[in-house]
Simulated assay, not measured.
Amino acid sequence: MITILCSGSRGDIQPYIALAIELKKQGEYVRIAAGKSFGDFITSYGIKHFPLAADYKSVDIDPKLLEAAQSSTNPLKMLFTFNKMKKYSKMMVDEMYEACIGSDVVVYHTGCTIGYFAAEQMGIPSVMASPFPMLKTSKVPSIIAYGKTKMPISLSYKMLQGMLWMASKTGVILYWKEKFGKLPENFNCPFELVDENHPSIVSCSNYVFPRPGDWNKNVYQFGYWFTQENDEYTPPKELVEFLSEGEKPIYFGFGSVFNEKNKDKFISYVKESLSKTDNRGIICGMGNVKNLPENIFAIDRIPHTWLFPKCLAVCHHGGAGTTAAGFAAGVPSIIIPFSNDQFAWAHRSYDIGVGTKPIYKK
Rank of each mutant, 00 (worst) to 15 (best):
F226R: 11
K265C: 02
K158G: 14
Q14A: 09
D94Y: 06
L292A: 08
V202A: 06
D300A: 13
G287I: 03
K148I: 06
A129P: 02
L307Y: 10
V107E: 04
S9N: 13
G171K: 04
E232M: 00
S200G: 10
Y56L: 14
W225G: 03
G287R: 08
G46W: 09
D60Q: 07
I144P: 05
I61E: 07
D278Q: 15
S142H: 04
G281K: 02
V30M: 04
A346N: 05
K357V: 12
C284S: 15
E95H: 01
A329R: 03
A20H: 11
N186G: 01
Q161Y: 03
M1N: 11
M78K: 07
K265S: 10
I114V: 15
I336H: 06
L135H: 15
G223Y: 08
K177R: 13
N218W: 13
K179V: 12
E178F: 00
C204T: 05
A328D: 11
C311I: 07
P199V: 04
I283E: 03
G27L: 07
G213I: 09
Y207I: 01
Y157K: 06
A99N: 03
L79I: 04
F254R: 08
K84S: 11
S103F: 05
N216C: 14
F308Y: 15
D60A: 12
E120Y: 00
V354K: 13
G27T: 05
K362S: 12
T227P: 00
M96F: 08
H109M: 00
G287P: 06
T73H: 06
K150C: 01
G330V: 09
K150N: 12
Y233P: 04
F180P: 00
Y224H: 15
K90A: 14
L292C: 11
G253P: 10
D62R: 03
M78P: 01
A54I: 06
G281L: 05
M1W: 01
F297E: 14
E238D: 14
K265L: 13
P63Y: 06
V105H: 00
G181T: 09
A129K: 04
Y157R: 08
V194P: 01
F191T: 03
D341N: 12
K150V: 10
D300T: 10
I124T: 12
K357M: 12
V107Y: 05
H49I: 14
L307R: 09
P293V: 08
G8A: 05
M286G: 09
P15A: 13
M78Y: 04
I124H: 10
N186Q: 11
I282G: 08
L307G: 09
K86Q: 12
P133A: 02
K90V: 15
S275C: 02
D94H: 15
K290F: 01
N83K: 13
A145F: 09
G253H: 09
G318E: 09
G111P: 00
A313L: 01
K276H: 05
F41M: 12
F50I: 07
D94V: 01
V202D: 05
N291A: 06
E272D: 15
P141V: 14
A313M: 10
K139H: 09
V314S: 10
L312V: 02
T170H: 11
C204R: 05
T277I: 02
D12W: 03
I124K: 10
R211N: 04
F180A: 02
T323V: 07
V257A: 11
T149Q: 06
I334D: 03
P332Y: 05
I296F: 06
I173F: 01
P63Q: 03
K362V: 11
F132Q: 06
M151G: 10
P63V: 12
M122V: 01
